[in-house]
Amino acid sequence: MKQPGLDGRHRDQNGQIRQKNGNTRVGTLREQYGDDFATGYRSDTHLSTVLRREEAPSLSQLLRRDR
């Protein structure tokens, strides 16, 4: 059985925590992080687009910055 990881994600066999895929849509992320996630972006926008436009290297960095 896999061990729980950060933010409800799971660790891979090698112990690494899987990251969100760049093609994950903002609408899906809003279900997990709240309706105020990525304000100003449509729900069908890809995470990779938001990260590029916000100049954030990762989802976790974007979440930390928005707090």
Rank of each mutant, 00 (worst) to 15 (best):
S43M: 08
S43L: 15
E54F: 04
G15M: 06
Q61N: 11
R52A: 04
A38E: 04
G15Y: 12
N21I: 12
G40W: 06
L6E: 10
I17N: 04
Q19H: 12
P57L: 09
R30E: 01
R64F: 04
N23F: 06
T24G: 04
Q13Y: 14
D36N: 10
T28K: 15
Q61H: 13
D12L: 10
T49H: 05
A56M: 14
D7V: 10
N21P: 02
L29G: 00
S48Q: 15
L29I: 10
T24K: 13
L51V: 05
D66G: 13
L51P: 04
R30T: 10
G40C: 04
D36Y: 10
T45Q: 02
R67S: 11
L62I: 08
L63R: 14
M1A: 15
Q16F: 12
T24W: 03
S58I: 13
R30F: 03
G27D: 01
R18E: 09
K20H: 15
R11G: 01
L63A: 00
A56H: 07
A38K: 06
R42G: 07
R67C: 05
T49G: 01
D44R: 11
V50E: 03
G34F: 00
L29V: 06
G40R: 08
Y33F: 05
D7I: 02
R52G: 01
L62F: 02
G34M: 00
T39Q: 15
M1E: 02
T49W: 00
T39Y: 08
H46F: 11
K2N: 07
R64P: 00
R18M: 14
D35P: 15
F37C: 00
D7L: 12
A38R: 08
T39S: 13
